[in-house]
Amino acid sequence: MTQGAKIWGLHLLILVVVFAAQFVLPSYHMTNLARIMVLAVFAMGYNIAFGYTGLLSLGHALFFAAGFYAMGLPIWHLGWLPLPALIAGLMVGGLLAGAVGLLALRTAGVSFMIVTLMFAQAGYLTLLYLNTWTGGDEGFVVARTARVLGGLDLATDTPRFMAAFALFACAMLVCLWLVRSPLGRVMVAMRENEERSRMLGYDPFRIKLIALIVSGVYAGAAGAAYGMLFGYVGATFATIQYSILPMLYVLLGGAGTVLGPFLGALLMFYLIDITSGYTDAYLFVVGAALVGLVLFAPKGILGTLRERIAPWLP
């Protein structure tokens, strides 16, 4: 079996397992899994920028929220149909990432982190400021009638799961293809040594901008899907916390691995879910997980696994 076949086989197997989970899981966990899959798409996008290209952004909530509002606002105000609204969400996510990238990518490292943070904060405040249009702090509910896609009512369990799975599967396969493509190789080269890559004939700015836009499209798609599947659009999704969450998932699962974001989202979601049964101190769990990860396992679960036993893992 060639390496390529092994890699594709593993990822398809994971997809089959996730797909099959719907037949055994009770309704509560099925909803959770749908949520996790959408969040994992967001985290995959974050991973493309951070894990593969080395762009540590603190502003991805902006692109995530862009997906929510670019999907929700046209439905609310203009009566758009779900499909164009979802596509609008994905595109606005990418566009915004491109715009932010044009400015923020002039900086690097710590400055890049602060600039992206500031842009996301400005975005969040803008949502509050335009509260007559956006519903401000309270947000708004996506009309039940606008959540029917191709005859499937996305507010019910099975279609919702299927829709989330379709997005998740697409996102994962595209991500796998991307990181194994020549472009993916150049993105990694940028992360590893920007100056060397420049002297191999690559424009660092352009490569990083492309990575950030792809990342923004993922975040926008995840945001639009989340709003559509769970029927609510609100400014909380633009808060800094939603920039931190995908980072946490990626760090936990393993930065620069295709499956890491999903694994991280899955574990973190249930870690919070379970601990919140005992204590309401879930912020503490998030904080402790962050500190623990950077201290003891900066490569995350799959990153460590790749180092020890499976160097072929993409």
Binding site: L56, G109, M247, F284, A289, V291
Partner: peptide, 29 residues
């Protein structure tokens, strides 16, 4: 925490974000 990270700028930001959440939660509790 910070010393063990060798004051790597990006890792310390992530760590202080974690610290932020922990302190905030401690105050809330």
């Amino acid at each position: 925490v910070l010393k063990r990270l060798n004051y790597d700028p990006e890792a310390t930001i992530v760590a202080t974000i974690g610290l932020l959440y922990m302190l905030q939660q401690a105050a809330l509790t």
